[in-house]
Design a protein around this nucleic acid. Structure first.
Lengths: 146, 146
DNA sequence: ATAAAACCTACAAACTAAGTAGGGTAATGC
DNA sequence: GCATTACCCTACTTAGTTTGTAGGTTTTAT
């Protein structure tokens, strides 16, 4: 299951994407608009900034804004950042790989092979969906169909 | 990520499937063979029994045994039982559905639609793989390929 | 009867997620 | 230049889940 942190990140990013013309947006504005604790959201936005997805401006008139275009921000990237590994086992994770003690040989471990399939099927969706798909309007909905 | 409980369950079930001819197998035998704490495994096997996957015999000469054929036990069933929902959001879960406050209308919520796709892609794998795929030998490996 | 084994309940420890607190620091506008 | 604004950072608390432990109860074969 996706953590609240991850869901909050999607909400915040959607809000920023929908308000790109506004320039910098206050944390408080996002927080109250999406019903998220101000301080908790602060941490999330900071992580997104460190990951190079958001930019920020300090001082009066400051706030956060998207650095990249919505269509360049994949769901996979956000999920990995806030939620952690996408794979079901460390030994099949592309970004958080850890050797597992169970499979002596990954090439012949049946569990390993099957979990790779699960991972690839999942990635086929989330690597190809972006923030722009999240904020797409109903009329564009056909594009979402897989 | 799959929990240890889930992984232990797969190990135990594999052991039972590979030793079906033995009849009832002791918890202790599975535990020491797969390096699992006896008492922890006890809980897991009990859950599998209550779910109708395992049978048991009490007293001397007792133990656990498979009730169903390995090819009838899908990975999806085990994962749902020990690990919980397969879906990434409660509102797209088939077995653990909960309405989510975010999407006013599930039919037009983009997140909802995308997460359904993820779920379906995952299920396409784990609903069609069974315990018999887990214990398949190297020569049968082609059958595993997706 | 007795030993062996599953069954059951409750608890403890460790870890993670979620949220809070409070101040530090940099930029901005007047 | 100075107060204000608002991001930045560290640490802590709370709650929940996962993992594992302890000890007793029931059933069965011999």
């Amino acid at each position: 299951m996706l953590s609240k942190k991850t869901k909050y990140a999607f909400h915040a990013l959607s809000y920023l994407a929908e308000n790109q013309d506004k320039g910098a947006v206050l944390i408080q504005e996002i927080a109250s608009s999406k019903n998220i604790s101000h301080k908790f959201l602060e941490n999330i936005l900071l992580e997104l900034k460190k990951a190079g997805i958001l930019g920020s401006k300090k001082g009066k008139g400051g706030g956060y804004y998207l650095i990249k275009k919505p269509e360049e921000i994949t769901l996979a990237k956000i999920i990995r950042l806030l939620n952690g590994p996408i794979a079901w086992l460390p030994c099949v994770s592309l970004n958080y790989y850890e050797r597992c003690s169970d499979c002596a040989d990954e090439a012949t471990c049946n569990m390993h092979i099957i979990m790779c399939q699960v991972r690839d099927q999942t990635l086929a969706v989330v690597e190809n969906k972006t923030l722009s798909d999240l904020i797409a309007k109903t009329t564009d909905k056909q594009a979402l169909k897989y």
